[in-house]
Design a protein around this nucleic acid. Structure first.
Lengths: 212, 212
DNA sequence: GTTTAATTTAAACACACGTTTAAATCAGAG
DNA sequence: CTCTGATTTAAACGTGTGTTTAAATTAAAC
């Protein structure tokens, strides 16, 4: 069998960059293959379809991030009663690790996640919960335990509010950092944004339920 | 001149429903015109292009909501020092007013806003700030005054976190209420979701800045 | 009732998309 | 070297898109 083929990798690399920047449906296979300098048909040859290419792009990051993230949460719980801030903060290192895998990997991953959740009309939600459900529930459990005054149904909503904040912020992170630079002369890399959002999220998740 | 033409309205009505449900780029003019039972070409005749149709759909809601919303904020400030919770809550009535304009108008408007911010790659941001900037800054000013311990640059980020929460939650509100009903046997209409999100947002916006 | 302008209609246009095909090329095994 | 299977390639396919055209129809003005 012949297999030197970095073609697959070239496609994934070009695709993830374009997907993150402009979204999935706005990125054509022709654009991907021209940036990757491979033949158009090679996408279907190696991945079957565009949909499966999207999954492959996401999986390459999720496979790295998810185990590390849930490990971090589990390890954090070894100590005594982590705060919400600490739980969220424990995800920062796994996130930044992605920069070692690829330049700007953290930003790319978060933007992909954002695009995915927004565009896929619930399809990505299914993909993640079925493939990474155990890692995910480790995180959810830790959050729930550290805010025991929030009933489960309320926590469900708040975690999705949180997801929304992260996902939207990351999908528009480029535009926002530009505006912030222009209006406040304040330069923010992706890590700075992550560190800004954590206290915001933690406060919202833990705020007492008002029965007005 | 001939003008019985509810054609324009029929198009707007069908378009807003489909846009809210499935997003702008996922909704073809052929689907819109078939649901509206009008001819395909009438969209371009009455609106010029799909892009201008999208703007018209959004404007119909924004023209109703924005003045009412900023009025509500201004009126609230007549009293003494409204809290963040009160400021956010003052938007609920204007939002629910949209249900009088059209059945399910509140949900439709918020979903359109969500889709718009997500899909339009900054274009809607420009449209709203140039057309409704004065109404908007009334709201921003009120929020800033009620949380004077947050520096302007930090507030910029937190308001966009807030926007993200709202926009994402509303864009996926249908899916989320379904899941909540299945998993927690808890039925939520759009008003219930709005009332859930307000304390979450207010807590995040006002949380003290940590200089760790 | 005739004229005029606005509107509606069916058809076609031009283009971009994801996918498929079949031939050409390549690399490794025997 | 030869053969075999994997990979790459150029071309075409079929479909769906927003938009345009030019004729038909409608409604109001004179």
């Amino acid at each position: 069998m012949a297999n030197r083929s970095d073609t697959k990798t070239r496609i994934l690399d070009a695709a993830e960059k374009l997907f993150a920047e402009r979204g999935f449906s706005e990125t054509s296979l022709r654009l991907i293959t021209s940036k990757a300098e491979v033949n158009l048909a090679s996408v279907n040859y190696h991945f079957g379809s565009k949909k499966e290419l999207i999954r492959a792009v996401l999986a390459r990051y999720l496979d790295r991030f998810m185990p590390e993230a849930s490990d971090a949460v589990v390890q954090l719980k070894q100590g005594s009663e982590p705060s919400l801030n600490e739980i969220f903060s424990s995800l920062v290192k796994p996130l930044l690790e992605l920069n070692k895998f690829k330049a700007d990997g953290t930003r790319t991953f978060l933007q992909l996640l954002g695009r995915g959740y927004i565009e896929s009309q619930g399809h990505l939600r299914w993909f993640i919960t079925t493939h990474y459900g155990e890692h995910l529930s480790e995180f959810v459990k830790a959050v729930a335990e550290s805010a025991p005054h929030i009933p489960p149904a309320e926590m469900f909503w708040r975690l999705h509010f949180t997801l929304g904040t992260v996902v939207f912020t990351m999908a528009s992170a480029d535009a926002l950092t530009e505006i912030a630079e222009a209006d406040f002369n304040e330069h923010n890399d992706i890590e700075a944004v992550i560190r800004k959002v954590i206290p915001y999220l933690a406060a919202g998740v833990a705020v007492p339920v008002t029965t007005q």
